[in-house]
Amino acid sequence: MKVTGIAALMIAGYLFAQHAAAEAKPVLTVYTYDSFASEWGPGPAVEKAFEAECGCDLQYVAPGDAGALLSRVLLEGKDTRADVVLGLDTNLTAQAEASGLFAAHGLTGTVLDLPVAWDNPVFVPFDWGYFAFVYDKTKLTTPPATFEALAASDLKIAIQDPRSSSPGLGLLMWVKAAYGDHAGEIWAALADNIVTVTPGWSEAYGLFLSGEADMVLSYTTSPAYHIFAEKDDTKAAAAFDEGHYLQIEVAAKVAGTDQPALADDFLRFMTSPAFQSIIPETNWMYPAVALEGGLPAEFAGLVTPEKALLLPADEAAKMREAATEEWRAALSK
């Protein structure tokens, strides 16, 4: 590697640290989560595609994961700079909606391709996926098909903490949706299977890849990445008979935006093929609108759950505290 090249890049990093000088174009500020905006997420391609048709400058602000995103918006309140907030999931939307910071999207005629009906007037879905336990087919030939089977096995799993991570919260809701009042018993039975509980998705996934856990809480779509990028088809998601909890990722227009028209345009663009076709191979989730050419090839062999579970947003918000406490108590014994 050329040392001078590296040095030049490093200096460039500093010189161009600040935003490019404000152009005359109107600016649409989209608050999103970090991995959406990152170079390896859908962000850059989305920005390019939207800017090509809007005559505007799309800027991302990414204060962290989805939890940090909502927390930032709530912290800023009415005078937030955000025009659009993109990347909340249904476990967070009730709280977001209650804040009164978001406006109705007013979109009509969009044909969504979700496993459940969607009629929320404020939040527009842009992608979705099923939570699932991912395993390595070469090491585990018959994966468990229920939580109970998992609990009865001596398999080790890595999960995320519902207090700091949205997949973690998703798993909490999954068990709750599948087992209701018996969720506590399931957690107690799972306790000896849990290797550890990580702060975020990436730490848990890293532990799984390095062999620390036999299974990791992720998505049914995760194996597609390995097939696509690494030509590795050893990873698979275990299908659970209870059904799989859905994560629906949504966006909404901020009520106090100074670019209402641009924000509306963006939400419309978000449900268009130009945006939707970017999602599968960058966010590794299912697009919210059916793609004309179908899904990329690596999605073909993925597990498709028989049954989709999803707690309504307000119900999820109401039971979150009690469910977290139930989880904590069961795993603390």
């Binding site: 903490d161 207090r163 700091s164 306790a191 849990i194 290797v195 550890t196 509980v197 990580t198 702060p199 730490e203 532990l207 989880w327 904590r328 795993l331 603390s332």
Partner: peptide
């Protein structure tokens, strides 16, 4: 603490 702690028994003030 989160990664090595193994679960919510290891809950700290920072968390």
């Amino acid at each position: 603490i989160l990664v090595m702690g193994g679960g919510p028994r290891a809950t700290t003030l920072e968390l």
